[in-house]
Amino acid sequence: MTTPVDLRLLDFADAIGVAIEYGRMPADRDGIYDHDARRIRLRRGMSARHHRSVLAHELGHAAFGDCHTRFGPVHAKQERRAEEWAALRLIDLDDYRHLEAVHAGHPGAIAVDLDVMRSTVIAFQGLLERLGDSVYMRPRMGAGMWERREGVS
């Protein structure tokens, strides 16, 4: 079943001129973005939530124009950034807040209810900073430097 989120991801791929193909992948890969070819290749047969999370992650690479590298620190930064990009597009803060309370913050249970992978929820959790009675989305240095601030009890 294609959801509105899935359609937004496909529309984004189309808007930036990235083709999506399906086929066999190396055993350790579910998806890969080839910047030179402007193509995302995905493993056939993934569950809907796995497909959604992998596609969003690979679109994160496309959004940043990531090129494959074997240099560890750069590769790690690209992977973290792509996972965070995906999390911000797949998880609504209000939905997350509700499910965090329901599941006592357990990322696996939250992921099932959000229909995304656990790694996506963990990336989203990493984007939140709790200070006192507030949660800050994507905090940066300096007063008033955040995307969103929410009060929590």
Rank of each mutant, 00 (worst) to 15 (best):
E129N: 09
G142Q: 11
G60Y: 00
G45S: 10
P107R: 10
S47F: 03
L90Q: 01
G65T: 00
H106R: 13
G108H: 05
H98M: 08
I16H: 08
A82G: 08
I122N: 03
M141Q: 11
A82F: 04
R130E: 14
D95P: 00
A19R: 15
A111E: 01
A76L: 12
R44Q: 15
H61P: 05
A27T: 07
A56K: 01
I91Y: 05
G108N: 12
H51S: 03
A86Q: 05
G23N: 05
A82M: 12
K77R: 12
A143I: 08
E58M: 06
E21A: 13
G132L: 10
A143Q: 15
T69Q: 08
E84L: 13
F124N: 04
R70E: 12
A86K: 00
I122F: 00
L114W: 03
R41K: 09
T69K: 05
R81S: 14
A27S: 10
D94G: 02
V135E: 08
V116N: 10
D95W: 04
H57T: 01
P26F: 02
G132N: 13
A104N: 13
R118K: 13
R80A: 09
A123R: 03
S47N: 02
R52Y: 03
M141V: 13
E129A: 15
A123P: 02
R52W: 03
A82R: 08
G65I: 01
D115A: 11
A82T: 06
E84W: 01
A111D: 02
D115W: 01
P26M: 04
D92M: 04
M117P: 00
G105T: 11
H35L: 07
E83M: 13
A63W: 04
R49E: 11
G17D: 01
D66Y: 10
D34Y: 09
H61M: 10
S47P: 09
F71Y: 10
H103Y: 13
M25K: 07
A27R: 14
D133K: 14
G72Q: 09
S134F: 14
A19I: 01
A111F: 01
G126V: 01
L128W: 00
R80S: 09
H103I: 07
R118P: 00
D28N: 06
S134C: 12
G144L: 10
H103F: 14
V74P: 01
R130T: 12
E58G: 06
E83S: 14
G60W: 01
G132E: 10
C67T: 09
I40C: 12
V18D: 06
Y96R: 07
L127C: 08
H50G: 11
R49N: 13
G105E: 07
A143W: 02
S119G: 02
G72C: 04
R41E: 13
R80P: 02
D94H: 06
A48G: 05
A13V: 03
I16R: 13
R130V: 13
H106K: 09
L55D: 07
I122V: 15
V54T: 15
D34E: 08
P139L: 10
L99W: 08
R138Y: 04
I91S: 09
E79D: 09
A62S: 12
A37T: 04
D36P: 01
L131V: 15
R44I: 09
R89F: 07
V54L: 02
D92I: 11
A109Y: 05
R118M: 06
